[in-house]
């Protein structure tokens, strides 16, 4: 069932432009009314999402991911195009719509800085009209799943970034939203906290059918958790498909070789390679040549360890971005 439809959505922002004025009057005029330049931060974006999908929204800084998320959550209003999410117009039917969604913006906190996080949870529980019993039950449930039990009476200012992020997620999920938007939820988290949080989201997605749309710069998160990837560049969607398919666009493999002593330069001639550290080589080889490369290098007497792997999602996205720019 399709729960999100965006058709030809556009959003324009203005940014300061450099002034060309040379005369004093021109400079005064420029100071009083600084020149502005219009740029399309979202450019004709069309997108549809099915119920239960886990979508990764990817792209470089300034590609429009967060702005798209803000349009989808109703924070921003589109300049043109149609947007319907969970049967609602996000802005015109804000109250009914926001009752069904959860939103976490990693860089913007919704918790009260000086007050115990449980108080913030109760505030959001009353905003979402949960009864006292329902709220307590849900707080207990989420605290246990996210490991927040011992932190409930601490204010956010006394928590680490990872703990705070988990609290932000919990506050946004109290009302069991059907659709969750997350903007860089794993930003600055340590690997353990990151995995815990991502596993928790995956559990929500698989066991409760919650639809999740997440932006991230962490390709490992997207690779392992998001079945679908949407790549944005300069406000446009340049890829929309399965994450595994995205990887198949790359026609090369990565061969990693650890040796006891340096490899002969002649053996490496003709390969694109990188010496990661002493006696540790990373070699890029085309899919067609992979077998030959492996047999040529892997059986040298000084080779201690060999591994061959497909390119990472970083490579795949880089490839995509480069091909679009070209």
């Amino acid at each position: 069932m399709e729960i999100l439809q965006a058709n030809s959505v556009n959003k324009v922002f203005f940014r300061p432009a450099s002034s060309e004025a040379r005369t004093i009057s021109g400079k005064i005029k420029g100071w009083l009314s600084p020149p502005k330049q219009q740029f399309k931060v979202i450019d004709d974006v069309s997108l549809s999402v099915e119920k239960g999908e886990f979508v990764g929204l990817l792209g470089t800084n300034g590609s429009g991911k967060t702005t798209l998320l803000k349009l989808l959550t109703g924070i921003l209003q589109a300049d043109s195009g149609q947007l319907k999410v969970l049967g609602h117009h996000p802005v015109k039917e804000r109250k009914a719509y926001t009752q069904k969604i959860g939103a976490v913006f990693g860089q913007k906190s919704l918790l009260w800085w000086n007050v115990a996080i449980i108080e913030s949870f109760h505030l959001y529980a009353s905003i979402y009209k949960l009864s006292r019993t329902e709220a307590n039950q849900r707080i207990d449930e989420l605290s246990s799943l996210l490991g927040l039990e011992s932190l409930l009476t601490s204010p956010p200012k006394k928590l680490s970034l990872g703990q705070r992020m988990k609290a932000e997620v919990a506050a946004s999920l109290l009302h069991r939203p059907e659709l969750i938007f997350l903007d860089e939820p794993t930003i600055a988290l340590d690997p353990v906290s990151r995995l815990n949080l991502m596993n928790f989201l995956l559990q929500l997605n698989r066991e409760h059918g919650t639809t999740i749309i997440m932006t991230s710069h962490n390709m490992a998160d997207v690779h392992h958790y998001c079945q679908r990837s949407v790549i944005m560049n300069a406000g446009r969607v340049i890829y929309d498909g399965r994450t595994t398919e995205l990887l198949s666009y790359e026609h090369f493999k990565i061969l990693e070789i650890k040796t006891l002593s340096a490899l002969d330069e002649q053996l490496l001639a003709g390969f694109e390679y990188e010496l990661v550290e002493d006696n540790y080589y990373r070699i890029k080889t085309s899919n067609e040549q992979a077998k030959e490369t492996l047999s040529r290098l892997a059986f040298q007497p000084q080779v201690a360890d060999v591994s061959i792997s497909p390119p990472s999602l970083d490579h795949a996205i880089h490839h995509f971005m480069t091909s679009v720019r070209e």
Binding site: T73, G74, I75, A103, Y128
Partner: peptide, 8 residues
């Protein structure tokens, strides 16, 4: 204002 705009 984001935190107010995405809540009911």
């Amino acid at each position: 204002l984001d935190k107010y705009l995405c809540r009911p």
